[in-house]
């Protein structure tokens, strides 16, 4: 029973972290699909979201829920500004140059955060409505904190999928990622699509931040989680939004299991071992479509 309890707990923790990996990975995928750029600042956007929510809750004394909504909006605006000021002026430049610029953006965000009074390089935490509450189910004890992450993440991810699947703008964004030229002929403004893509990706990062904060605390190096989300995205095929979420979950769960049942050190490489194994069997990733050229 003891073992079963621990296993459930470990898997749930893995799912919670996996949801966050998935969200960050979804940000990667959305930007990559529409602009073919890999945004290496995705992790730093998460970190910035965590700091903003920390300030809103502890300094402005907003409720957790208000802070969640305000963080999402604020990060959306950050994404839109980044696109407008930096990325739009780089349209037409080679992709590798733009990718390098996103690395620059990530350092820029780190520096800004370290310079803001009350943020800096220290570690912070904040209480959520779920802190120190547990659900008991027989012998299994589940923390509300982890449960809340899973539920919130899934709800927000579902909202993103509904938006892309059914709304007019979401459909236009999918269309643009498939055929930009045709999209323009339909009267779709590609500039607007790019701007919305960055808005949504940054908002997803921000949500990841506020959800992750209670587990890892708020600090400047939170952004390194972005490096774990890359294998999640690749695992899913890099162009598949559902693949990003599944990839995130697989990596989250593996990592969590490796952390509990294997020697120290395995935890950090577990993600990469899984990635290599999957890519050997399915080079296009789990949900990727292999582009076959018709000859």
């Amino acid at each position: 029973m003891e073992f079963f309890n621990e296993l459930t707990q470990t898997i749930l923790n893995g799912v919670a972290i996996g949801c966050i990996y998935g969200m960050v990975a979804l940000g990667f995928v959305l930007i990559y699909k529409s602009t073919e750029v890999i945004n290496f600042a995705q992790g730093e956007l998460l970190m910035l979201g965590a700091f903003i929510s920390y300030s809103l809750i502890t300094q402005l004394h907003l409720s957790y829920w208000t802070a969640l909504v305000v963080t999402i909006l604020a990060m959306g605006i950050v994404g839109a500004i980044l696109e407008r000021v930096v990325l739009r002026s780089l349209v037409g430049e080679p992709t590798y140059a733009i990718v390098i610029v996103t690395i620059g953006i990530s350092y820029f965000i780190r520096s800004i955060v370290s310079m803001i009074p009350g943020w800096g390089t220290d570690t912070y935490g904040f209480r959520t409505p779920f802190t120190d509450k547990f659900l008991r189910w027989g012998d299994v004890v589940i923390s509300y904190e982890y449960l809340s992450i899973v539920v919130l993440a899934l709800v927000l991810i579902a909202a993103v999928f509904v938006f892309f699947g059914y709304s007019r703008m979401g459909t236009a964004m999918r269309a643009t990622s498939q055929n930009q030229l045709a999209a323009v002929y339909m009267g779709i403004s590609v500039t607007r699509v790019f701007s919305l893509t960055w808005t949504i990706a940054a908002a997803l990062g921000g949500i990841g931040g506020i959800l992750l904060a209670p587990i890892t605390f708020v600090h400047m190096n939170m952004g390194f989680i972005g490096l774990k989300a890359v294998p999640a995205a690749v695992l899913g095929g890099f162009t598949s939004p559902p693949g990003a979420i599944v990839g995130g979950l697989i990596i989250g769960i593996t990592e969590s299991l490796a952390g509990v049942y294997l020697e120290e050190g395995w935890k950090d490489i577990a993600a990469w071992i899984i990635l290599i194994a999957v890519l050997i069997i399915r080079p296009q990733g789990l949900f990727g479509i292999q582009e076959k050229k018709k000859v």
């Binding site: 007019r168 459909t171 236009a172 999918r174 269309a175 498939q178 055929n179 030229l181 045709a182 999209a183 002929y185 339909m186 009267g187 779709i188 479509i289």
Partner: peptide, 17 residues
């Protein structure tokens, strides 16, 4: 120049954008 990985119906609906 179609949206190849979408259905015929979706392509037509995109025409309504």
């Amino acid at each position: 120049e179609l949206f190849k990985n979408m259905t015929v119906l979706d392509n037509l609906i995109l025409g309504r954008h």
